[in-house]
Simulated assay, not measured.
Amino acid sequence: MISIKAIPRGNPQDVTAPAKFYAHAIADGEVNLERLAYLVSNQCTVRESDCYAVLLALMHNVADELSQGRVVDLGALGRFQVGVRSEGKDLQEDVNTHTVKSAHLNFRPAKRLRDMLATLKYKLIDG
């Protein structure tokens, strides 16, 4: 179950407009690679240390492939791709590597994860 709470947000296009309240998902803890390795090891015959080593290698290789500009397709999990934010320019020829402000990761979940998102249950918390 996903916890949500109401968060006020102003309208950036009309700063005089009153804020509206929007549902905001609240995280309920965190799971790290060590915990994932432990969970995976309990679901198969592979030892926890082996699972952890594989997850670390996966993380290293995903980062390396992304830094080479490749889309990383993790099958039933989804796809990762690097995206960039840049300054807007009036002319196409003014866009260059110096106009890039920052990079971020785009994640496109595969069907199983998209289906999971469609069936989530929510609970409102005070806050």
Rank of each mutant, 00 (worst) to 15 (best):
M1G: 11
M1L: 07
M1Y: 11
I2R: 10
I2L: 12
S3V: 00
S3Y: 07
K5I: 02
K5H: 06
A6I: 06
P8Y: 03
R9W: 08
G10F: 04
N11Q: 06
P12V: 13
P12G: 09
P12N: 11
Q13A: 12
D14G: 09
D14I: 13
D14H: 10
D14A: 09
V15H: 14
A17Y: 09
P18F: 10
A19K: 14
A19M: 08
Y22F: 14
Y22Q: 04
Y22H: 08
A23N: 10
A23H: 05
A23T: 06
H24C: 07
A25W: 02
I26N: 07
A27Y: 08
D28E: 14
G29M: 11
E30L: 10
E30Q: 13
E34G: 03
R35Q: 15
R35I: 10
L36W: 05
Y38Q: 14
V40Y: 07
S41M: 05
S41H: 02
S41W: 01
T45L: 05
V46C: 04
R47F: 01
E48C: 06
S49N: 03
D50H: 09
Y52V: 07
Y52Q: 09
Y52A: 06
Y52E: 03
A53P: 00
A53Y: 01
L56A: 11
L58V: 12
L58M: 12
L58H: 00
M59F: 05
H60P: 00
N61L: 08
A63C: 10
L66Q: 06
S67F: 01
R70A: 07
V71P: 04
V72L: 00
V72N: 03
D73K: 02
L74Y: 04
G75I: 06
A76P: 01
A76D: 03
A76K: 05
L77C: 04
G78R: 05
G78K: 02
R79C: 05
F80S: 04
F80A: 00
F80K: 01
Q81A: 12
Q81E: 12
V82L: 14
V82P: 07
G83C: 01
G83N: 01
V84L: 13
R85Q: 08
R85H: 03
S86M: 07
E87Q: 11
G88A: 09
K89H: 11
K89P: 05
K89V: 11
K89S: 08
K89G: 04
Q92P: 15
Q92L: 13
E93T: 10
E93C: 01
E93P: 00
E93M: 04
D94M: 06
D94E: 13
D94N: 09
T97C: 00
T97I: 10
T99N: 06
T99R: 12
V100D: 10
V100R: 13
K101H: 05
K101T: 09
K101C: 03
S102R: 15
A103F: 12
L105E: 03
L105M: 05
N106P: 06
N106L: 15
F107P: 04
F107H: 04
F107M: 07
F107K: 14
P109W: 01
A110Q: 12
K111M: 10
R112V: 13
L113T: 10
L113Q: 07
M116K: 15
M116P: 05
L117M: 15
L117G: 15
T119V: 12
L120D: 03
K121I: 10
K121E: 15
K121P: 02
K121D: 14
Y122A: 15
K123G: 13
K123Y: 11
L124W: 08
L124S: 08
I125W: 09
I125D: 12
D126S: 15
G127T: 14
